[in-house]
Design a protein around this nucleic acid. Sequence first.
DNA 1: AGCAATAGTGAGAATCAGTATCATTTGCGA
DNA 2: TCGCAAATGATACTGATTCTCACTATTGCT
Lengths: 147, 147
Amino acid sequence: MSLNDLDDEVAALLDDADQRYTSSRRRLISALQAGDGPLTITQIVATDASLPQSTVYRNLTILEEAGVVTRIVTSDDFARYELAEKLTGHHHHLICTACGDVVDFSLDAAVEATLDKALDGAAVSAGFTADSHRLDLLGTCRDCAKA
Amino acid sequence: MSLNDLDDEVAALLDDADQRYTSSRRRLISALQAGDGPLTITQIVATDASLPQSTVYRNLTILEEAGVVTRIVTSDDFARYELAEKLTGHHHHLICTACGDVVDFSLDAAVEATLDKALDGAAVSAGFTADSHRLDLLGTCRDCAKA
DNA sequence: AGCAATAGTGAGAATCAGTATCATTTGCGA
DNA sequence: TCGCAAATGATACTGATTCTCACTATTGCT
């Protein structure tokens, strides 16, 4: 999705939620777009120091409610945010258990299909209405392996 | 794994970590064993009111370091703990996005094998040393679907 | 058994990511 | 341009988790 298309899509989602697409929110989207994985609030504030922390928290919550971003919790004490899959496509996360960093990756469609089928079966037999799945790979990133 | 085998295995793991298998820790293991999914601290304290909160927190941390339990973070504000996969076998989680409850489930071995192969490929091309994976199904549990 | 020395306990204080408050500013509609 | 509702951002607050520390229990030694 190009930057302009993304912008239009975000604008539409915010409009649906009766929210304005303010400049703080634009800068947030831009910071998230620039990362190669979900970002913590600290990382976002470090990237764009003109964004006050309270605005970042509030707007990320609003953007999440509007379906623009997704909140990710790994194991460390910091929530992370990324653009919703609707905007970026389905993907998964490589989580470094040493430094906590998170990077995106994708699986090929055949594997995803097999997985979805198996998960649907499991959901049905547990009386569960499946919505989506979340698959993370835990391990050590290149940098931490070196250290 | 039978209750006695579990007990022996936990004792061995704690011994390796130079930790004692005290009665608080036994009660914790027993509470975790009784649940059908990872439990929050609140749930544990509710189950066994003789366990003070500070002891539960401290001992779960120690048990996690010893490799006996695993800390799970979903999206709500409460961490959950379960017996380590080494003790219970590999499994996944159904997470109810309405009430936050978590229930265990398993996939058949063929699907797991396909998945592991695909994940290994992804890890290698990202320069990542894979350790384990985590697969959760998000949706609505029977009780919340009714409501 | 008695006696350190060491480990575990638990009530309460401290920490800190995240949320709520509110006076001020911004920007849309008439 | 005016008026009003929404957004901002500095600051205070909340609550899950961690830390502290005096006390108790257990281990190892003789």
